Amino acid sequence: MLLLGTAALALVPAAARAQGVLDAGGMTFRDFAVADRGSSFNKIDPMIGSGAVPTQARILSIDNDGGFARIRFDAIRIEVAMPLGWQANEDWERGVGFSSDKRFRLIVWRVDFAYEGVNDAEHYAATKTGAIKARKPGIQAQARKLSDGSFLIVYQNVPAAPGDAETRVVFDLVVPRPGKPKEGALMTLGVAARDSDHGLKLMALLKSKLKVDW
């Protein structure tokens, strides 16, 4: 099992360290939401980049009391819950969600581990952390296995992108397909460094409602 280093481990709640789970610590989607009854999801703001033409992701339902919308990325057959006040786009290979101020940014993908040159989710997590640290030595990257077989990777000291005011922390959740270890899904959440604790709790909420049509 891969273990988080001391610095990265400090980001993880005690319950997660002890039990291999992610814990929202009593927070809910309402703590991250804007009470706009889902109107933000009718907007298109091209965050995908790289020449892709984004389209609006499909809204399955709005839970005003819960503070989230259920979003379907049809191209990758994955459903996620996002806080109200966010936006959600997709292209042919990934889904993207982000808060109105873009401090919180989410990307969801499918992963073919064989295509990536690795054996399974654990090998992917180990290889990716090693590659990131080799390419950008200033980034701290560590991974740990969760009790359900998924892997959480934490990247600290990630350089700010254009428009960001500070360095960032990025969380990867690598989810293997049950019974088919060569396939998986990847959910990446990037947050401003000052939001690292809230970002981890939001990842716990996102994970709890993630649905993959394998």
Rank of each mutant, 00 (worst) to 15 (best):
L146R: 01
I76P: 02
L11W: 05
N157L: 13
P83L: 04
R103M: 08
L84M: 01
G184R: 03
F68Y: 13
A204L: 02
R194E: 10
L60Y: 00
V12S: 02
L146H: 03
W214V: 04
G5Y: 00
L189T: 04
E166G: 07
F104H: 09
L186G: 01
S39T: 14
T28E: 00
L60A: 12
V111T: 12
R30M: 08
V169L: 05
G117Y: 08
F171T: 00
L206D: 02
Q142L: 10
H123Q: 09
G20F: 05
A114D: 15
A8P: 03
T188K: 09
S150N: 10
V191I: 07
P137E: 01
A143C: 05
L205V: 05
G95P: 02
I78V: 14
I132V: 15
N42P: 04
G49Q: 06
D74M: 09
Q56I: 11
P137M: 00
I62Q: 05
K180P: 04
R30A: 13
V53R: 15
Y124T: 08
F73R: 01
Y115H: 13
P181L: 08
S147H: 08
R194D: 13
L186S: 04
K180S: 13
A165E: 15
V212S: 03
M187E: 00
A165I: 13
E166I: 03
N89A: 11
G38I: 06
Y124H: 07
A134H: 12
I78L: 03
Y155Q: 12
K201F: 06
G49F: 09
D197Q: 14
S99M: 09
R94T: 14
A57D: 00
D45R: 12
V158G: 08
F151W: 14
N64Q: 14
V53L: 15
M1Q: 11
A141Y: 06
R135C: 15
A160W: 05
V154N: 00
E166Y: 06
L200P: 03
T6W: 06
A165N: 11
A10R: 07
R168V: 01
V108K: 07
R77W: 07
I139Y: 07
F68K: 15
F41G: 07
D112K: 13
V170Y: 07
V34N: 06
A8C: 11
F73K: 01
S100C: 13
R30I: 09
F73W: 01
P181D: 14
L200V: 04
I132K: 08
M187C: 08
G95T: 09
K136Y: 13
R168T: 02
V169C: 09
S208R: 14
P159V: 02
A141F: 05
D91T: 10
I62A: 02
E90D: 10
